[in-house]
């Protein structure tokens, strides 16, 4: 494969980024809260989320719609619409600096060269009236002040890097002339154009067919290893997570309910919700499997149940779960769970 433009993180720091990841720690999210103030009331989308992201690490944030996984990503990127969104509390530190209190202009400049994002819907994320090459090249023109021909040259190189066949010929083509998978590659090319340290991928393959999904995930993994990016993969797909993640944070009703190494979590979940999810999905390699569905529905974010948000659907639930909200705590080495009965879940 062709070599990268600026090489690894170390090379990047030398290239003049003002941010330095101490001991490889890129991102710290601490006690983050996000609310949406709507006409019908306050929807509490995120209720105290903590996690760290290191260089070269793939963190999967797993959750269903309404779990707060996408809102977390948008809060990190700083692309939440405020209002209706409000961030009443919390810090998001990038290389030690809090993005939430940073000056708007300075923060804007982190989007692209430092933190960047790939969205689910590549078609609506690309501007239909400009050629794709031009849109990729724009990143270099705006952030690096390159001229037209140089930036286009770099765009072609990037298109080749994300394995778009005939990149030279297709650099002037428009988004609608590409297939879904190719458009997602273009989105990835734009996201990595400025060699970011953190890449957030929000359901990057949900809209794609399974054979294409495999290609895109392989590409993302390859790029991440090559550039030692910190990758946050946001998804609802337990299969995709098992294939690529190092660590997993499972979200439910705006909180992380379980966090663990990927191998541990699949072998022995420590939260009833995770356990329920794993038991409820049909597996390709199993025959005659009984699906143990989780009863009930995800909660309304305007009326999150008292105590543990999962208690109405949980078979372990006791009185304490209805009164006392369990905090995320260490339940075994490397295992964190927000459940009063985590040990029972883990061992039974």
């Amino acid at each position: 494969m062709t070599t990268t433009d600026t090489g690894t993180r170390r090379g990047k720091a030398a290239a003049g980024s003002e941010y330095h990841a101490k001991d490889g720690l890129l991102l710290e999210v601490e006690d983050l809260y996000v609310e949406f103030h709507t006409a019908d009331g306050i929807a509490r989308a995120i209720n105290g989320v903590n996690f760290d992201l290191y260089e070269g690490q793939t963190l999967a944030i797993l959750g269903e719609s309404g779990s707060g996984k996408s809102v977390t990503a948008q809060a990190i990127m700083g692309i939440l619409d405020v209002p209706p969104a409000v961030i009443p509390k919390g810090q998001i530190r990038y290389c030690g600096e809090d993005l939430l209190t940073m000056q708007a202009e300075k923060r804007r400049k982190t989007r692209g060269p430092e933190i960047s994002m790939v969205f689910q819907d590549a078609l609506s994320s690309l501007n239909p009236v400009f050629p794709v090459g031009w849109q990729i090249a724009e990143m270099f023109r705006v952030h690096r002040g390159m001229n037209r021909s140089d930036s286009l040259e770099r765009a072609i190189k990037l298109m080749q890097r994300v394995q778009i066949p005939g990149a030279k010929e297709r650099v002037k083509a428009y988004p609608h002339q590409f297939s879904g998978g190719m458009r997602q590659r273009i989105m990835i090319a734009m996201a990595i154009a400025l060699d970011p340290a953190v890449l957030i991928a929000d359901e990057p393959t949900t809209a794609l067919d399974v054979t294409v999904q495999a290609q895109i995930m392989a590409l993302l993994q390859e790029l991440q290893e090559e550039r030692q990016m910190g990758l946050i993969l946001i998804t609802h797909d337990l299969g995709v997570v098992a294939d690529v993640a190092d660590k997993i944070a499972v979200m439910y009703a705006g909180r992380i309910v379980e966090r663990a190494d990927v191998y541990d979590l699949y072998r022995q979940p420590a939260h009833p919700y995770t356990k329920g999810l794993l038991e409820s999905i049909p597996r390709l390699d199993q025959k005659g499997q009984q699906l143990a569905a989780i009863g009930g529905l995800p909660p309304n974010l305007m009326r999150i149940p008292e105590g543990c948000a999962f208690n109405p659907r949980c078979k372990y639930a006791q009185d304490v779960c209805r009164e006392d909200r369990p905090a995320l705590r260490l339940v075994a080495p490397g295992r964190e769970s927000a459940c009063h009965f985590a040990e029972e879940v883990l061992n039974g």
């Binding site: 066949p165 392989a218 337990l238 997570v241 098992a242 191998y263 597996r283």
Partner: peptide, 24 residues
């Protein structure tokens, strides 16, 4: 098609051989 489906079991990560199809 079967080889591309991700199985929710990380221990199969390296055991699975994936047939990558060309093009669209």
């Amino acid at each position: 098609l079967l080889s591309a489906v991700p199985v929710p079991d990380p221990t199969l990560r390296d055991k699975k051989e994936q047939i990558v199809l060309k093009g669209d």
